[in-house]
């Protein structure tokens, strides 16, 4: 049962990483145009820089 003292913090940490990633993605407006993103992946002429964010 001693393994639990490692496993539980690890699982909580990984979950928290997921949560932070979700909050970051939301704050940087990444869910604003899901339809457009689905199509953008097909573009070949897209520049390397991330696109300017919409306010």
């Amino acid at each position: 049962m001693a393994i639990l003292t490692i496993l539980i913090p690890v699982s909580l940490f990984l979950g928290a990483v997921g949560l932070v990633a979700f909050l970051w993605a939301m704050r940087t407006h990444q869910f604003d145009d899901l339809q457009g993103d689905a199509h953008r992946i097909l573009l070949t002429d897209y520049d390397e820089k991330p696109a300017p964010k919409e306010k």
């Binding site: 604003d32 145009d33 899901l34 457009g36």
Partner: peptide, 13 residues
């Protein structure tokens, strides 16, 4: 300076 299409809203800023 920049142009960004939002396809869900059919709009460009």
């Amino acid at each position: 300076r920049s142009a960004r299409v939002n396809l869900s809203l059919r709009r460009v800023t």
